[in-house]
Design a protein around this nucleic acid. Structure first.
Length: 457
RNA sequence: GCCGGGGUCGCCUAGCCUGGUAGGGCGCCGGCCUGCUAAGCCGGUGGGGACACCCCCGCGCGGGUUCAAAUCCCGCCCCCGGCGCCA
């Protein structure tokens, strides 16, 4: 039972209340869970005692004479009626308790800034030299020095074209209007050089992480409800997840989901930990709560490709691995030459599974703001409890829930938008980041140095 | 999709027909013994509640029959083999 949340519920519910407060959630959930748990334990003891009585009678029956047997069977039947009604009550209480328990978010780590929205995110690091259009200079300084970090920049006097216009109207290598007609909005057709770019970005991330010892995985793109529910919370389910009609299958919104399910129900020997995986998959997202935000272009779409880092660790390793995952992501973006800041995400923006989250946000010169390209979370034992994944320590026969972590390595379409804004020149040409060239060289028709706008014929 | 075989406490396996407290082997943990190791012996090795004794639940999952289900019945999942279909 050493799931941290259940343990605190019984031993120190105040910790849970504090954590819910930090997330700006209803604290009364804890009190409900505590009283239901007390009631559950009381009923369980009562039922167990009666079941014991019934077992004793059952065991006597085969040894008795016919006459005595009839009497005992009647007695057992009477007892069963009482047990059944109590069991029904026990079952109800247990279901009610578990429903609350499974709806509780992870405990917020002490180092997480407390705040109701993303404006409370705290920048922890910056890298690179941002191209800042003079009209955006105030905003840029607000997001950097205004929040306590100093970032290198150069002021430019031409306004870059937004990524959506670059794709659709300047390079003419994407068609979201036709995709909207045949699929719906937030879908896209991409062509030629942008497709090569998508592939090269994936290869780049896969190459980097496998060379660091991560095990490469091509996972299932769909999961059963039971396993999906083990990885995400109800809100994510509602807003992000597509269901296959008529089947108990759900499209993954990230390889994280399949990678977390990879060891569901298993006990992993401690000497095998940490387990480091790099998954590559398409990601499907309903974006149900997004309204008309980022409706243009391919920044926020229903499907994209992503290379994902996933780790299973011992509880005492997870914070160290957490820093390792974000630094891997940072290294990838330094390789791409995209200027970024890393923020420690505010408590209310964490999402239920995470105890702490870093976002890596790249500077977008045409939009004049930082935008999230990487999300790195330590889910501690929140997912492993639901999926029943434990580590096994032979010394002392310890079996306990391990920690799971996940982080984007590279999400293809969003990274392409960042390249389109950061690598464009005033004449509409987009330079290909040098790191990607080795992954493009092998293809005869892939772009090598520049992506040029189509000339009007 | 159809037909047949199967799923037992980490692994292997007995029990199922003929209902009556789930047994054995291996591995692992702890102890005893021993100059050390090995062997040998003893105990433990699924979940939960009280945590001192103890008790309940657990044989792929979910129902049913019964005083009593690993065992009988129904539905589902997965694995193996055959047939069909297929990139």
């Amino acid at each position: 039972m050493p799931w941290s949340i259940l343990e605190y519920l019984r031993k120190n519910p105040e910790i849970l209340r504090e954590s819910l407060k930090k997330r700006f959630m209803d604290v009364s959930l804890v009190d409900k869970a505590v009283s239901l748990d007390v009631e559950w334990r009381r009923l369980l003891t009562e039922v167990n005692n009666l079941r014991h009585k019934h077992n004793l009678i059952s065991q006597q029956i085969p040894k008795l004479s016919d006459e005595e047997r009839r009497i005992k069977i009647e007695e057992a039947k009477e007892l069963l009626k009482t047990i059944e009604s109590l069991e029904k009550r026990l079952d109800e209480v247990e279901k009610a308790r578990d429903e609350i328990l499974l709806s509780l978010p992870n405990l917020v780590h002490p180092s997480v800034p407390v705040g109701p929205d993303e404006s409370y995110n705290i920048p922890v690091r910056v890298w690179g030299k941002a191209k800042v259009y003079h009209e955006f200079l105030n905003d840029f300084l607000k997001y950097t020095e205004g929040q306590g970090v100093k970032m290198d920049y150069e002021v430019i006097n031409w306004r870059p074209v937004g990524h959506a216009d670059m794709l659709e109207n300047v390079l003419k290598l994407g068609n979201t209007l036709k995709a909207a007609e045949v699929a719906s909005s937030r879908f896209y057709y991409l062509f030629d050089d942008i497709v090569w770019l998508d592939i090269a970005l994936l290869l780049y991330a896969i190459d980097y992480l496998t060379s660091k010892g991560f095990k490469l995985v091509l996972p299932p793109y769909m999961l059963r409800h039971q396993f999906m529910a083990g990885v995400i919370d109800l809100n994510t389910f509602k807003d992000a997840i597509y269901k296959i009609e008529g089947e108990d299958l759900y499209l993954i919104a990230t390889a994280e989901h399949s990678l977390a399910a990879l060891h569901a129900g298993e006990d992993i020997p401690e000497e095998d930990l940490p387990l480091l995986y790099v998954g590559v998959s398409p990601c499907f997202r309903r974006e149900a709560g997004a309204g008309s935000r980022d409706i243009k272009g391919i920044f926020r779409v229903h499907q994209f490709h992503k290379v994902e880092q996933f780790a299973y660790t011992l509880p005492e390793q997870s914070w160290e691995v957490f820093e390792m995952l974000i630094s891997n992501a940072e290294e990838l973006f330094r390789g791409l030459g995209l200027p970024y800041r890393v923020v420690n995400v505010a408590s209310a923006e964490l999402g239920s599974p995470a105890a702490k989250k870093y976002d890596l946000e790249v500077w977008y010169p045409a939009q004049g703001r930082f935008r999230e390209l990487v999300s790195c979370s330590n889910c501690t034992d929140w997912q492993s409890y639901r999926l029943r994944i434990r580590y096994l320590r032979r010394k002392g026969n310890v079996r306990d829930y391990l920690h799971t972590l996940n982080s984007t390595a590279i999400a293809s379409t969003r990274t392409i938008t960042a390249i389109l804004e950061n690598y464009q020149t005033p004449d509409g040409v987009v330079e290909v980041p040098k790191t990607l060239r080795k992954y493009l060289e092998v293809f005869s028709r892939a772009p090598k140095d520049y992506i040029h706008p189509v000339r009007k014929g």
